[in-house]
């Protein structure tokens, strides 16, 4: 593995190896000295051409815990429409000797495009490209589900996960459908028909318009952020009607299995897709998802840059 661009590029073995490595990394994070010398002297660039403080600092923390040098390169909104800029940026980063570039970009395919271009020789990690994919988010979600619900720390066979909300525009949904189904989970997509992509029937997931009938069946409910501006494009009539049919609230919490968990990739629209009560309930693992994000991203950086998929324990 040289890049991490899309879950679609990962094999089952790759995915499990990332999750297992992340488990080792979590131990580092729990230790009094939260640092490994593994990537000392390596340069990692956080290239964020779209706003996302949470993902950026998660990657930054992961890189620093592996002792890498981190350069933050944020140019939110700057000349994204001027295509030339990404080429120029890539050449600049190459000249600076970047070993890896973590890219967040508003255009779908930007990470793959950067990796395929001849302008950069380092590893490329996709931290979210347009409405395409967000592979490390899916990996941290799978890690979180496994930690809570899987007895044997293997894959996710036997588990059922609902992904609820704006599937059409969600890179988190695309990556999660691919990863969770690859790991053996049954995935149920829940959304109004307007927020489902054409051809969704070809995805490895079931589709439902009826949230209430799905709730008792699943072990995890993953709520997706719904942007208010979707309303002006006629995706749904009003935020109130959206919440009524597709929001997670106290009543719906009651329909869930006793052991089922509530997830959200953040940032949340409290009151729209999820009530504060649900977000802060005992079933919510939303804060823990953030913690797990650092471990998973450490694992990805480690596997891409340190080369060998052996336990990091050897390297300590």
């Amino acid at each position: 593995m040289r890049h991490l661009l899309s879950i679609a590029d990962l094999s089952y073995v790759d995915a499990l190896s990332i999750l297992d490595t992340a488990q080792e990394m979590a131990r580092v994070s729990d230790a009094p000295v939260k640092k490994l010398p593994t990537l000392r002297g390596r340069t990692i660039v956080n290239l964020f051409l779209e706003d996302s403080t949470r993902t950026r600092i998660s990657f930054e923390a992961a890189a620093k815990r592996l002792s890498a040098d981190v350069i933050n390169f944020s140019a939110k909104g700057s000349s994204v429409s001027k295509g030339e800029s990404l080429k120029d940026t890539a050449q600049t980063l190459q000249a600076m000797g970047a070993d890896a570039v973590i890219i967040r970009h508003p255009a779908s395919g930007a990470a793959q495009w950067l990796a395929d271009s001849a302008w950069m020789s380092g590893s490329v990690i996709n931290a979210g490209d347009g409405t395409h994919e967000h592979p490390t988010q899916a990996l941290l979600d799978a890690f979180t589900i496994r930690k809570h619900l899987s007895a044997n720390s293997g894959d996710l066979r036997g588990l059922s996960v609902a992904i609820v909300g704006d599937i059409l525009h969600s890179r988190v949904a695309r990556s999660n459908v691919l990863l969770l189904s690859m790991l053996g989970a049954q995935v149920i997509i829940v959304a109004p028909p307007t927020l489902l992509p054409v051809g969704v029937e070809s995805w490895p997931a079931q589709v439902s318009y009826d949230f209430d009938s799905v709730l008792p069946l699943v072990d995890a409910v993953m709520m997706l952020r719904v942007q208010q501006e979707r309303m002006s494009d006629y995706f749904f009539p009003t935020p109130r009607e959206y919440s009524h049919y597709f929001g997670l609230n106290r009543d719906r919490l009651g329909f869930m299995k006793k052991t089922a968990i509530v997830m959200h990739p953040g940032p949340m629209n409290r009151g729209l897709e999820i009530t504060a009560e649900c977000a802060d309930s005992a079933r919510s693992v939303i804060v823990e998802q953030v913690t797990n994000g650092v471990s998973v991203r450490m694992a990805v950086l480690y596997l891409l840059l340190a080369g060998s998929p052996t336990s990091p324990g050897v390297a300590i």
């Binding site: 779908s108 395919g109 409405t131 395409h132 992509p197 054409v198 051809g199 969704v200 070809s202 995805w203």
Partner: peptide, 10 residues
Amino acid sequence: EGIISSRLGL
């Protein structure tokens, strides 16, 4: 618009 556009997020 079709299976490919949905997969690619375009």
